[in-house]
Design a protein around this nucleic acid. Structure first.
Length: 267
DNA sequence: ATGGCGGATCTTATCCGA
């Protein structure tokens, strides 16, 4: 097996199609996982992405919100989408990447953001986020996740102190509260998932994949969070040779996504 | 100075994101 995977919360794939194409032409990942495509399956720019060299696609879209997709240079099989929390929304799509004699299955997730107030008793969005994580954790206990799996996407949680600009100031801010980070860490450890970005970038180094649109100068204030992740089962993780976060992409266009691509090389 | 912006849509107002 040998392939490069990228994940990118694109915040409208139709609006940002030109920078997606530029990214694919420049970095040439074998597989790109997109979140927040914000379109229906019919509206997904499948022809333009096929023409760019990514004819193999798995799309789980919906109107206006959320939506995920995998686009690939390599054939995809076993395409599937799972619904979580009986919400009728589009937050997961998966496919097996035919990358030689040891194929890997990639699961692309858009975990709920969770709203503002980190209290499930008064904030239904935070309740949804915790319920989603519980359902995910339960699913991961299945034998399917013993080996050969990659999970990626916008997890909407920055687990480590150095995954946020200020650990202390974000402890009560949704995405870095202890109930979220403890749950994510427990989910990782009980299934022996490997955080591929942190395998290659030491935890002592601050790294972010998201910066708010509201900052006057995102680069100067640098108040980011590492919300976008690539995890793999131990066997697949053993093959990873590199990971990077494309910080510069936050300034690539006049209208950038608030997230940047995260890439990992396997094999 | 963690929402100050920026998406889509039921568009000139509203809901959503994190």
């Amino acid at each position: 097996m040998s392939f490069t995977l990228a994940t990118w919360n694109i915040n409208s794939v139709r609006l940002r199609l030109p920078i997606v194409i530029d990214f694919l032409n420049t970095y040439k990942p074998d597989v790109l996982a997109l979140q927040e495509i914000k379109c229906t399956n019919d509206q997904f720019p499948q022809k333009a992405l096929a023409a760019a060299g990514y004819p193999h696609q798995a799309v789980n879209g919906m109107k206006a919100y959320h939506g995920v997709a995998l686009v690939s240079r390599l054939p995809l099989s076993n395409v599937a989408a799972r619904e979580f929390c009986a919400m009728g929304d589009a937050r997961h799509v998966s496919a097996t990447v035919e990358a030689g004699k040891a194929p890997a299955t990639v699961h692309n997730f858009y975990i709920p953001a969770g709203g503002d107030e980190p209290d499930p008793d008064i904030n239904p969005k935070f309740r949804h986020k915790l319920d989603f994580l519980a359902e995910l954790r339960s699913w991961f206990s299945e034998p399917l996740f013993d080996s050969g799996q990659v999970i990626t996407g916008d997890f909407n949680i920055a687990p480590h102190e150095n995954d946020v600009w200020s650990h202390k100031q974000l402890l009560k801010v949704v995405s870095h509260t202890p109930v979220e980070t403890d749950t994510l860490n427990a989910m990782r450890d009980e299934r022996d998932w490997v955080d591929i970005v942190r395998k290659h970038i030491p935890e002592t180094e601050r790294v972010y994949s998201w910066w708010s649109y509201r900052a006057k100068d995102w680069n100067l204030s640098d108040r980011g969070r590492r919300l976008d992740h690539i995890w793999a089962t131990r066997d697949v993780a053993g093959l990873s040779s590199n990971a990077e976060i494309l910080r510069d992409a936050r300034g690539w266009s006049a209208k950038p996504s608030d997230h940047v691509p995260v890439l990992a090389r396997f094999g």
